[in-house]
Design a protein around this nucleic acid. Structure first.
Lengths: 333, 333
DNA sequence: TTGTAGGCGTTATCAC
DNA sequence: GTGATAACGCCTACAA
């Protein structure tokens, strides 16, 4: 059942059917009703491929993230999908992993689908600072379609970054730790991404501004698995700290588990702050104080701006969004 | 840059270019190399819309789940996406919510995309037993393309169900609880889905076969939020139980939190078992014994069977997969 | 207001 | 082995 069949049944030309389908006002009410009823009767659905071919768009947005099974990514994808649907767009999803090579491959593949725009979720797509060319593949994609980064930042044509103000949040948290008497604050992370770096910068700035030394022994890179983190901390007997600032809740829970295992009291002897305000934070015991990076807000802004852009409006290339501290039981400030 | 441009540059016809693109053997090695190099030079990519129009397929599979931000769904989507990619298929993602109306709408929308097949993740798509017509919209979709259910079961033409053996797993867990001396076992769930019903059946069968009564007061339906569950259990002062079997880890964690708040010792005084072997189970304290429903296996089987089916092979319409008990610290058997 | 005809970029079926 | 050419189903000037 195609547009020709409908046209014939309705006794009009395909142009008229097309006009009805696309809600053109240049159709008489009478023929419009006629055509609509025929379409209804025959369950006619325009062929999206044909339409895509003509318009060079299938109203589809590409979403790429390293791994949807990560709770943070999953939430972001859920928010993005919902918002996109509200605008009548669909999304195709790619999980790229974290390897440079795989990420490049993923973008190459998804670009072949002739999507209208691209969203990259997670700061792994942000490059590792200025002057490196690891983000070149993203710029290349941006030559064809607008690229939106969520929680990453790349400066370039047709690239739009919406990210949470992690440096400021980290600075704030660590400052409070220091002001409440902590002196040896462990920086716990699983990544050297843009966002992790920003958190590190905030951490270091807070230390410096409060006259504390920045110590390599108090920065720990590890895998983001609860037991793994717990065990690594348990095994470092010489590592002394009275606070932990983790770049993800999972890591923070690992630190809490370690303290529980050692019989260290939280928050009296150890203060812990996580990141992302995930369900883990209320799952662990005691429940975790954490930074909410307002993922929903980031996602909504991203899609809203994307839609404006696709309509030809101007949108800011750089949107920083404030984080929010959610206090629970692992802090005493 | 389209197939005509390439043909002209290579001094051949578009038919030959098409043959090269599609790896047809009926091209001389010489012209093939010539065409390939021209394509390479010009970064030629065939237009997927045009190809889709001709072949009536864009090698795309639809994935629908109620909510990707749910950890279980997110993991499933990740597994599915990875496997699909291995086969050269892409996926478009829809989150439908749980409302009947929304689910129908989601399927209606995604069907318009002319996907090659459909995966429905989660037992919310399974109907609520035989004789109800709430799954009619799924049968309708199956008239056009094969539909695969993950963790649901609908019997019908062109519908394929891959699901974990939840009845058996539940029976097994509850039996062990009883055999280790538990007498009042709370059944905790957030859903009346196919899979939740199966778990309930297993629970009841175990009680009956061990000569214990099935009590309404020991079945609790609640929202799947840790604090919500904890608070509801705390508020039911008269509710007495010495074991909890929950249909999801989140619920089980709520029960653990309640016990912790009341000072009830786990597993001595209370035995708790969750479901899905999610990260929550190692997050909570004490760590949760849980049933692993082998989501990865379900997903891989689903996609493998789908690919076979799309190639014209026969595949079973019904694949039950065994669960696995993962023992941690909330049980003493 | 409506219809005609060309174009979108492929693939597939013929001939040669 | 290679090349015309007709689908595929829609959109949209342009004509009427």
């Amino acid at each position: 059942m195609n547009i020709y069949d409908i046209a014939e049944l309705a006794g009009v030309s395909i142009a008229t059917v097309s006009r009805v389908v696309n809600g053109s006002p240049r159709v008489s009410e009478k023929t419009k009703q006629k055509v609509l009823s025929i379409m209804e009767e025959n369950h006619y659905t325009p062929n999206v491929f044909a339409r895509g071919l003509g318009l060079d768009s299938m109203q589809t947005i590409g979403i790429v993230c390293p791994d949807v099974s990560d709770v943070y990514m999953a939430r972001a994808v859920a928010f993005l999908e919902r918002r996109l649907k509200e605008y009548g767009y669909d999304c195709i999803l790619y999980c790229s992993g974290h390897d440079q090579e795989k990420k490049e491959k993923a973008l190459e593949l998804i670009m072949k689908k002739r999507i209208d725009a691209l969203v990259l979720v997670g700061s792994t797509y942000a490059g590792y600072g200025s002057g490196d060319d690891s983000a070149e593949y993203i710029r290349k994609a941006a030559e064809k379609i607008p690229v939106f980064l969520i929680n990453g930042k790349i400066i370039g044509d047709n690239i739009y970054s919406v990210y949470s103000m992690d440096e400021e949040a980290a600075y704030d948290v660590v400052s409070r730790m220091i002001e409440s008497g902590r002196r040896r604050i462990l920086f716990l992370t699983d990544s050297r991404s843009y966002s992790a770096n920003k958190k590190l910068e905030g951490y270091e700035r807070a230390l410096k501004e409060h006259g504390l030394p920045v110590l390599g022994e108090l920065k720990l890179y590890t895998r983001n698995r609860i037991h793994f983190v717990r065990d690594i901390l348990l095994s470092r007997r010489t590592l002394v700290y009275d606070a932990v600032f983790a770049t993800d809740d999972g890591l923070a829970v690992g630190a809490v588990k370690c303290a529980n295992a050692k019989g260290i009291r939280i928050p009296e002897e150890l203060c812990v702050v996580g990141y992302n305000n995930s369900e883990y934070s209320v799952c662990c015991e005691p429940e975790l104080t954490t930074v909410d990076n307002t993922a929903e807000k980031l996602c909504n802004i991203t899609i809203d701006n994307m839609m404006k852009l696709l309509k030809g409006e101007e949108v800011p290339a750089d949107v920083p969004v404030e984080c929010m501290l959610v206090k629970r039981c692992t802090t005493d400030f």
